[in-house]
Every structure is written in structure tokens, then in C-alpha cells.
Computed example of a mutant assay.
Amino acid sequence: MNDTREPAATTATATIPAATTPATMLAARIHAYGGPAVIRHEEVPVPVPAPGEVLVEVAATSFNPSELALRAGLLREVLPLELPHVPGWDLAGTVVATGERVIGRLDAGGAAAPFVSVAPELLVPAPRSLPLTAAAAIPVAGLTAWQALFEAARIREGSRILINGAGGGVGAFAVQLARRAGATVVATASPRSAAAVRRYGAHRVIDRTAVALHEALEGEPLDAVLNLAPIGPGAAAALPALLGPGGVAVSVATPIPGGVHLVARRDTGQLARLVALVDAGELEVAPAAVRPLAELAGVHAEAEAGTLVRGKTVLVPDPGRRASL
């Protein structure tokens, strides 16, 4: 099921009465490292906020490709999971006690459920101009693009940057932010993503399935290369040759020899700035698909098979599948 239709945005808030908060919920949980089938949907208690935390009713979370490696156990040395684990780094929802619409990045996961308990300092007000389902696409992808461009690549007005693999969720933010900063944006994308990448503002889109990058660029040096694609080591090693003197290579996927391998971090100040750009009409957020949370294992399977729609896939808990009060 791929349904990109969303309800109209609203700025209204309404406290969710405690009496209507269910005692249990159906959450996605991982009990062991492995393939997509290790993701189960189970009845668990609705979390009780610890001192200093708030309960958030989750409107949506979203899928991030790095969650495949997390689920498979490939990141256990750097990001070990306490099993069973509720995934979901991106959060968009409503604070139960106040009705405030919020978004946040949860490094410990937990948003792949109807409710999650979090420290309020991890949250920022959600965009007023977007439905919460769309806002769930912002935290991880938006922060990754921001930090890659402005901290690692240090782009500025007049920079010339190549964004390799711009058709995904991070690419949508990176192209828009780089263009807004005054950079000349050259992007690679597959034919199915090219139109969206052009809409986001790329000055030039190269079909990475049809032509070699060094031929397409015709020897014009770059100030920065941002790699967002899981390319082979040989292709990664060839990227620095595209840079001019003082140029910077950054990757959030396959490491680039001599370049910066970025692991994005939570930053609520940057997240609030992204929200402000969205509400000012300067940053478009358009998830490629909105699907029920119950399909999370299928989303993982499609991503591993290379058949998942490009762009951000948002996942929505189904209120009708919650357990009784």
C-alpha cells in the first residue's frame, strides 16, 4: 500500500484526556538481529513517562536506510540494541498533556509505536504548515543534509557541489538547502528520481545509470562532493578526483578515501531552523509514500531488494489496531 495523500495541516492543539489513553498498544519490536522478519508487531504497555519526560502520541515515524544495518546487527559495535527494541528515530506527534504538535530525532528509537515517552528537550514545535505525517520526514534526513553541507562540506554562496544519489530522502533536503545557500548544484539521480531532483532546484541532473561522472562533468572542478549513495569502493575512490584545489569530499554512505564520513547527530537548534524554513515556504517536504506501521517489515524487505520507492517513506501507527483500554 503506497498512499501519499495526507490530511490537511492544522495548527490547532487539543489535550488528549488521560482517561482515553489506552493501557496497551501495538508496537513494532525487534527481538533479535536478522532479516526483516525479525520485526514483529506486539501488544505492549503504553509507556509511563519517567520524571522529566512527556508522553507523545505518535502521528508518524519514517524509514531510514541505516535502519537496515541496525536491524541486521551490522552496527552492533557502535550502536548496540537493548532487545527487544522498538525502532523509529524520526518522531512527529502530539504531547498528550498539552496537545502541542512536535517533532524530534530519537537516537534510542521508540517512535515505531502509537505512543512514546521522551525528554521534552529532544523535541521542537512541528511545522505549522505541514500535516504531522509529512513532518515525520524531517528530523534524520534534514539534519543529515544540514550537517553534511554546512559543517562538513562548508558550502557557501558560489560553491559548486556534486550531490551523488540525490533522489533519496536526504538528497531532497540537500539539493534544496544547497541551492538556497547560493551554491551551484549538480546532482546525480536515476531516471525515476530525476524530475523530483530538478523540482528541488538542482541546476543539472546527471543520469548516473548512463554516463560516467568524470565524462559528464567535463573536467570542471568541484568545491564539494556529497555522496549519499551506497556505491562500491572503486566508485567512492574516484570521487576525490572530481574536486578542485581545497575541495572537500563528504559521504554519509560508502566512505570516500581521504574524505569525511559523516554520522549525523541530534541538534534541536538546527531542527528548529529547518522547521522555520518549512513554514517560510523555503523548504519543501513531500514524502514519497505514507504507509501503515504494520507494513514496516515489508518496507525493510523492499529496501533490501531495491524496490522501495525513492524518497522518504513515512509510517503511520493505526489507531484502530490499538489494544482496548
Rank of each mutant, 00 (worst) to 15 (best):
I138S: 01
E157V: 12
V186D: 06
L149H: 03
A28C: 11
T188L: 00
H41D: 12
L81Q: 06
R29S: 08
L74P: 07
P51D: 13
Q176D: 09
G168C: 00
P230W: 04
L83E: 07
V285S: 07
A272S: 15
P319Q: 03
A249M: 02
L132D: 07
G246F: 03
V38H: 13
V170D: 03
G311T: 01
Y33I: 09
E57R: 15
V248D: 05
L217P: 05
K312T: 13
G306P: 01
E284I: 13
H261A: 15
F115A: 07
H85P: 08
A189D: 03
A294F: 02
T98E: 12
V275L: 12
D267H: 06
R179F: 13
P191E: 06
G244W: 07
G259Y: 03
L143T: 11
E57S: 14
L143R: 04
G234L: 08
V116L: 04
G311F: 00
E151Q: 15
A229F: 00
A152Q: 12
F115T: 02
L222I: 07
H300R: 05
S251N: 04
V54P: 11
A136D: 07
G93A: 00
A12P: 12
F150E: 09
L226T: 07
A28M: 13
S251G: 07
P191C: 04
L274E: 06
L274M: 11
S129R: 10
R154Y: 11
A288I: 05
A196W: 13
P7R: 10
I206C: 11
